[in-house]
Amino acid sequence: MTHLISRLAQGALVLLATFTISFILVQMMPGDAVLIRFLNPEMGMTPEDIARIRVFYGSDSPIPVQYAQSLLAVLSGDFGYSVQSGVPVAQEIATNLPPTLLLAGLGLLTALGLAFMLAWGAVLGPFSALRRWIGSVPALMVSVPVFWVGITLIQLVSFKLGWVSVIAPGPWEKLVLPVLTLALPIAAPIAQILIRNIEDVSTRAFVPVARAKGLSRGAVLWGHVLRNAALPTLAIAGVLLGELIAGAVVTETVFGLNGLGRLAERSVRTQDIAVLQAIVLISAAGFVAISFLVDLVSLAIDPRLRSQRSLAA
């Protein structure tokens, strides 16, 4: 219990540091943060208005005060305004988050399915040549740029084979290729880590002991190896989130889908700092949340962690 609380506190600290660094970077930019935040054309402000607001919000006040103010604002969900659209950043995020979550969720599921299939094939496949061949597929897949996968899939599946329409597709049909694009490069490292962990665990001393009981290869893999191999594999979940977000940026751009990724891409093109800052902070929060979840799941799987923790408490 104390462990979980300290992990939460650590996560909060990481987020605070992330915010602080982004605040410092924004301060270093030409122009100033308040100006960026209130430079909303739809507000129709004259330079005098802005000057008044600057005084009101204390943009001339010392940096620490500004820091405290923007921290409070971010904590209450106020990320300022988008320069590009003039809409509050929070609103931009709210409209763009759901499609990205759907895309990323489907992509992750597909990737996990693919990864397990590859790992299973590489470990239990019928011939050693085939096992080796399947085992080397992920190494190839990590070397392929995501955007190229998307473009090539469109050319192959839509144009050449005509399986999926890109012109006016249905709501689900529209997602097939993006999900695949996102899943292929993510499945590869998951499969690599799974295969490696399975091989590592297979060399541990309890595996021949289990075989000596008269259990079959498959039963030992299922009953002994997988659970031990799952632990280190879980540790990459946070990194996986980062990969999914990066994948979303590229995939949404290639397929012209709306979402957080495309928003990020646009905010860089238009120098829309407030939007990008919000996306970075939200991703970091997601990373911290996932790491915490991984901690919980590891506790459930590994009895050693449980008893250490109870001793410490």
Binding site: F206, A212, G223
Partner: peptide
């Protein structure tokens, strides 16, 4: 087996 420390599955 040789090494009792490593010969039992730690998570079962």
């Amino acid at each position: 087996p040789q090494d009792p420390g490593a010969s039992l599955n730690p998570v079962r």
